[in-house]
Amino acid sequence: MEDKNIYEYTLMLADSSLIMGQRLSEWTGHGPILELDIAITNIALDEIGQARLLYQFAAELKNKQEPGSKATEDTIAFLRDAWDFKNLQISELPNGDWGQSVLKIFFLAHWQRQMYGKLIYSPIKNLSDVAEKALKEVTYHVRWSSDWVRRLGDGTEESRGRMQKALEYLWPYTQEFFEPEGYEWDGIFENAGEDFFENMKAGWNKEVSLVLTEASLTLPESHTYMRKGGKKGLHTEHLGHLLAEMQFLQRAYPGCEW
């Protein structure tokens, strides 16, 4: 039971990183200027790097649970269907314009910083090792995306309008960040008390609101309908299309290498 929880939790983290990385990689060659093209591609690569380490650990767990299953990081990434993916829905959403993309990074990176910030104390060594490496990366993502949110929110009328629109589009997807699924079990974290997720959420809210206020953006009304379910495999229409492209080669030519 415990191993199954660890497995699913690891997938949730890994899938969120992989799908985010795959989505952001669509910017490659299309960034507003060369420097930013490289910057956002670096972030995509960081995400995919985190996903790989997590999938390698997940494959280990899977092979232990079901001897003979021959799971690898690749089979887990390329041979599961949309309903098996546990990524946060926000990671699969379309990139939209530059503002929407940086705001998506902003929300996710702040979530990852909270999560990895706790996970470095995990008694599960594989997870705490990944967290230690990833924490540095997402700290930079937080800095970089916060700068862009401030710059565009507090920029021209055009840029502020677009950021506000992006905020209204993305905000409902942030609700599921800190609503724990059954597998987000307290053995994964050190001393997770009753208000563990509440505290992380409060930390996230505080940091995010600070930047949004500086960016002179207005949070949507609290009765906005909030989306959730990504962590247990409920997804938007966008994930299937993303997977179709990402998994095509392994599906059409199983085991293909180059």
Binding site: L34, E35, L36, I38, A39, Y140, R143, W144, D147
Partner: peptide
């Protein structure tokens, strides 16, 4: 060299472009 709107962005872009 690189293009950037201000010093902070220039530092971040330099990090992203030249220290990969």
């Amino acid at each position: 060299s690189l293009h950037a709107a201000d010093a902070r962005t220039a530092l971040e872009s330099a990090r992203d472009v030249y220290t990969r």
